[in-house]
Amino acid sequence: MPTHSRHFVRASSAGALLVVSLSACSPIVDVDAAPDAANPACAEVMIALPDQVAGNELRETNSQGTAAWGDPSQVVLRCGIEVPGPTTDACASVNDVDWIIQESTETDIWTARTYGRNPAVEVLFDPNQVASSTVLVDLGGAASRVEQTEQCLSLNDTVELPEEG
């Protein structure tokens, strides 16, 4: 009888619980599907996903609109999350894809969500294990399959600052 082991990765983002099941037969990553995972635009994202992200191989997941890379999982993607509204969270534009970046105060897991795209894509990763810039570059092509209708702006773009002098 094969030996099975289970590793649990918890992410505080949107109540997502990622359970990574490892076994000798079929390493399938258990990822909760996002509420709008059946959106046809998510299918476009999923077929454009790379085989590797930050040097980690794509693995099979058990939910629609999800993907994971690495063993154990280093990067997890969910398409169809709630579209983020205006925020004061950090925003980064990487290869014409705007991402809202949130660092968890409880874990080392970071969450990056596309901004200005419906459906939105969420990526969870540990920046101590994979470089955030590499993850966002590797996944930007797939995320860009969803049309961008709004841009993420910094505070300097939206507020007129008094001139010095």
Results as ranks from 00 to 15, higher is better:
residue 46 M to T: 11
residue 22 L to K: 13
residue 48 A to W: 08
residue 52 Q to E: 14
residue 55 G to S: 01
residue 66 T to F: 01
residue 47 I to K: 11
residue 78 R to S: 09
residue 54 A to S: 06
residue 83 V to Y: 02
residue 92 A to H: 14
residue 38 A to G: 12
residue 69 W to G: 01
residue 88 T to Y: 12
residue 88 T to W: 13
residue 38 A to I: 06
residue 77 L to E: 01
residue 84 P to Y: 05
residue 39 N to F: 07
residue 82 E to N: 08
residue 48 A to C: 04
residue 48 A to V: 04
residue 58 L to M: 07
residue 81 I to D: 08
residue 77 L to I: 03
residue 22 L to Y: 12
residue 84 P to C: 06
residue 63 S to D: 04
residue 51 D to Y: 11
residue 54 A to P: 00
residue 82 E to Y: 05
residue 53 V to R: 04
residue 48 A to P: 01
residue 33 A to K: 06
residue 81 I to F: 04
residue 33 A to Q: 09
residue 44 E to F: 04
residue 24 A to K: 14
residue 87 T to G: 00
residue 33 A to M: 06
residue 41 A to H: 10
residue 46 M to C: 07
residue 20 V to H: 12
residue 79 C to T: 01
residue 30 D to I: 14
residue 82 E to D: 13
residue 88 T to L: 12
residue 91 C to V: 12
residue 51 D to I: 06
residue 29 V to D: 11
residue 39 N to L: 07
residue 51 D to K: 08
residue 55 G to N: 00
residue 40 P to R: 09
residue 52 Q to H: 14
residue 50 P to D: 03
residue 55 G to Y: 06
residue 19 V to P: 11
residue 44 E to N: 07
residue 63 S to H: 07
residue 65 G to W: 02
residue 94 V to P: 06
residue 40 P to M: 12
residue 86 P to L: 15
residue 68 A to Q: 00
residue 34 A to C: 06
residue 17 L to T: 15
residue 50 P to Q: 06
residue 59 R to S: 08
residue 24 A to E: 15
residue 68 A to F: 00
residue 60 E to R: 14
residue 81 I to V: 11
residue 30 D to C: 14
residue 65 G to P: 01
residue 55 G to C: 03
residue 24 A to Q: 13
residue 89 D to C: 05
residue 27 P to F: 14
residue 61 T to K: 02
residue 32 D to H: 09
residue 33 A to T: 08
residue 79 C to Y: 05
residue 74 Q to D: 10
residue 18 L to C: 14
residue 31 V to F: 00
residue 28 I to W: 05
residue 73 S to T: 10
residue 22 L to D: 15
residue 44 E to G: 05
residue 32 D to Q: 14
residue 85 G to P: 00
residue 90 A to N: 13
residue 39 N to Y: 06
residue 75 V to W: 00
residue 57 E to S: 10
residue 36 D to L: 12
residue 39 N to V: 08
residue 51 D to F: 10
residue 33 A to I: 07
residue 61 T to R: 00
residue 83 V to D: 02
residue 63 S to K: 03
residue 74 Q to N: 12
residue 49 L to W: 07
residue 53 V to M: 04
residue 31 V to M: 05
residue 92 A to Q: 15
residue 69 W to S: 03
residue 38 A to Y: 12
residue 93 S to R: 15
residue 23 S to M: 12
residue 82 E to W: 08
residue 46 M to A: 09
residue 59 R to L: 10
residue 68 A to S: 05
residue 17 L to I: 15
residue 88 T to G: 10
residue 81 I to Q: 07
residue 29 V to E: 09
residue 81 I to W: 03
residue 49 L to R: 05
residue 73 S to G: 13
residue 47 I to A: 08
residue 36 D to F: 12
residue 31 V to P: 04
residue 32 D to A: 15
residue 93 S to H: 09
residue 50 P to I: 00
residue 60 E to N: 11
residue 76 V to K: 01
residue 17 L to N: 14
residue 38 A to S: 13
residue 51 D to P: 05
residue 54 A to D: 00
residue 21 S to W: 11
residue 34 A to T: 03
residue 93 S to T: 15
residue 64 Q to M: 08
residue 44 E to R: 09
residue 41 A to T: 06
residue 82 E to I: 11
residue 75 V to I: 02
residue 83 V to P: 02
residue 67 A to C: 01
residue 47 I to P: 01
residue 27 P to A: 15
residue 26 S to V: 10
residue 55 G to K: 00
residue 26 S to F: 07
residue 50 P to G: 02
residue 20 V to A: 14
residue 44 E to W: 01
residue 47 I to S: 10
residue 49 L to K: 07
residue 78 R to A: 11
residue 77 L to Y: 04
residue 74 Q to V: 08
residue 46 M to S: 09
